[in-house]
Computed example of a mutant assay.
Amino acid sequence: MEIKTFEDLIDWARQLHAHLARSLGESVDGNRNERASALLSYLSQHESELERITAEFEKQADPKVMKTRLYDFYNHKPFDSYRKPDHYYAKLSFDEIAVEIFYFHDELMALYRSLLRKAELREVADLVEELLEMEENESMRLARQVRSMDDI
């Protein structure tokens, strides 16, 4: 996907969450570890919810901001998680799955932070800040859930 505008960026982020939700969901039955399988199921649902929330940004953001050109996107390395096969997570342990998922969210937050630092328009900065805040809040919620599952 070619990312030229903030509209493209948000659509791309939504697609990343959708792809991850699908990959995690398709790995549930293939993972023989009960805890890991339960984590995959939870994470799949969580990523589906993030896909839905990200889609709301597409609907509610100022159309002028959405059409704003995005110049520095290609300075970022491509996200590794988008290239993983659908059943990739089926072979991983509980801890390995958690590491992969947090790495994905850290990558996305780093991208948003970078874009926020370079935002020249207040409206663009506000949008990126909202995206970053959503990812940060969801990552904290995810960390609490994973920790509580790990305690069981």
Rank of each mutant, 00 (worst) to 15 (best):
A21S: 12
A21C: 09
S23Y: 05
S23Q: 02
S23K: 05
L24F: 01
G25C: 05
E26T: 11
E26P: 15
E26K: 15
V28T: 02
V28H: 10
G30S: 01
G30V: 02
G30D: 05
N31F: 08
R32Q: 10
R32I: 14
A38T: 05
A38P: 02
A38I: 05
L39C: 05
L40W: 03
S41H: 12
L43F: 00
L43G: 02
S44C: 02
S44A: 07
H46Q: 14
H46D: 06
H46V: 05
H46A: 07
E47S: 00
S48F: 10
E49I: 15
R52L: 08
T54S: 01
T54K: 00
A55K: 11
E56M: 04
E56P: 03
F57V: 09
E58L: 12
K59Q: 08
Q60N: 10
Q60F: 14
Q60M: 14
A61V: 12
A61N: 06
D62M: 00
P63M: 03
K64D: 05
M66I: 09
K67W: 13
D72K: 07
Y74T: 07
N75P: 09
H76C: 12
F79P: 10
F79W: 13
D80T: 13
Y82A: 12
K84W: 03
D86G: 15
Y88Q: 04
Y88L: 01
Y89S: 12
L92K: 04
S93V: 08
F94W: 11
F94S: 03
F94R: 06
D95S: 11
D95A: 14
A98K: 06
A98S: 00
V99Q: 13
F104I: 15
H105C: 03
D106Q: 13
M109P: 02
A110E: 14
L111F: 06
L115F: 08
L116P: 06
K118W: 06
L121A: 14
L121W: 15
A125M: 03
L127F: 09
V128F: 09
E129T: 12
E129C: 15
E130I: 11
L131V: 01
E133Q: 14
M134W: 15
E135W: 10
E136Q: 04
S139M: 15
S139N: 14
L142H: 04
L142T: 03
A143G: 04
Q145E: 12
V146L: 06
V146Y: 10
V146R: 15
V146M: 06
